[in-house]
């Protein structure tokens, strides 16, 4: 993996420079007697340096390359070297007529400046990513809640969102909609789980394209999607349900091998007045009460 190599390379560089720094102090400076060592300073400066090095590695391992990544990592690396030089100061006395150690220590504020610029651009980057996440999340983020296949939030996130919506806008009517793909299990049986996942991804895009910015789409479980519609009356929710069923039925989905899959969906909705658990139980029961039409026998061959 390239990110791992990048981290390994950075770790090697940081180690080399730190060792070089120690050597520099050891050759040009005079060692302090053990009695003059200030342990608190050594621990806090050395600790800051080690932590900064760890942050550099985490940033490089966790982020794709690019301007923001380099600014953050570069800033932290400079802070690491600056504090490391500071720490060396505790062990060696550098003659007053030499200035190189001051330059080394000046790396700390320069690093902080670079890090700040990096954070500013990171914030801008975040705004554009938020736009991408619209309708997939609302108000708070929890990365553990995202489904790997569809990149939608899961049922747990949905339940928390329903509760939050009820708490934030007790006067407003919100609606919850469940949408279930008809005969989805046959897609898995006939074309494999990979094709099933591709169909779920297609449906996800379709739903995202057909909803308002304030709506939230979650993958409830399996082939069942849940959509939270804030500030929506029953009639409007019913229209949305009908509309989503129409667009799903119009989807011309093809497998990777080019086979056309007929898709249709059932949707039910209710006003989100009760607890998320009872609301979802009620909607699940409503979906089960309206089973899809039996597949024509030809599908079985």
């Amino acid at each position: 993996m390239p990110t791992l190599n990048r981290s390994a390379l950075a770790l090697a560089c940081l180690l080399l420079v730190s060792i070089f720094c120690v050597a520099l102090y050891a050759t040009l400076g005079v060692p302090k007697p053990l009695a003059a060592w200030k342990w608190m300073d050594i621990v806090s400066e050395g600790g800051t340096s080690v932590m900064s090095a760890l942050w550099v590695l985490l940033i490089l391992a966790g982020r794709p390359g690019g301007r923001v990544t380099w600014l953050l990592a570069g800033g932290l690396a400079a802070i690491m070297l600056g504090t490391w030089a500071d720490c060396m100061d505790e062990f060696f006395i550098v003659p007053k007529d030499q200035y190189w150690d001051n330059w080394l220590e000046a790396l700390t504020p320069i690093g902080m400046l670079t890090l700040t610029v990096g954070l500013y651009f990171w914030r801008e980057e975040q705004f554009s990513l938020n736009e991408h996440m619209q309708k997939r999340e609302r108000l708070f983020r929890d990365h553990r809640s995202f489904d790997r296949v569809t990149q939608l939030a899961n049922a747990d996130y949905l339940r928390r969102q329903i509760r939050l919506e009820q708490k934030r806008h007790p006067q407003q009517e919100a609606a919850l909609l469940l949408l279930d793909i008809n005969h989805f299990h046959l897609v898995n049986r006939e074309h494999g789980a990979r094709e099933g996942d591709r169909l779920l991804q297609a449906i996800t895009h379709l739903l995202l394209l057909n909803l308002r910015p304030q709506d939230l789409v979650c993958r409830y479980a399996g082939d069942r999607f849940a959509i939270l519609l804030p500030d929506t009356a029953a009639a409007a929710a019913g229209e949305t349900a009908a509309h989503l069923q129409r667009v799903v039925a119009l989807l011309a989905h093809h497998t990777r091998e080019g086979a056309r899959i007929e898709v249709s969906a059932r949707a039910v909705c209710a006003q989100a007045g009760s607890s998320p658990e009872s609301l979802l139980a009620e909607l699940n029961a409503a979906l089960e009460a309206t089973p899809p039409l039996r597949m024509p026998a030809a599908r079985f061959a």
């Binding site: 899961n154 747990d156 479980a221 399996g222 979802l280 079985f300």
Partner: peptide, 26 residues
């Protein structure tokens, strides 16, 4: 799959109610 329709199975479990109840429901 083989019956061509969902059979009216009722399920009982020797366990407490799971947190991922939605997977059971679907």
């Amino acid at each position: 799959w083989l019956a061509g329709e969902r059979l009216p199975w009722q399920f009982r479990f020797n366990r407490t109610r799971p947190s991922h109840i939605e997977q059971y429901a679907v």
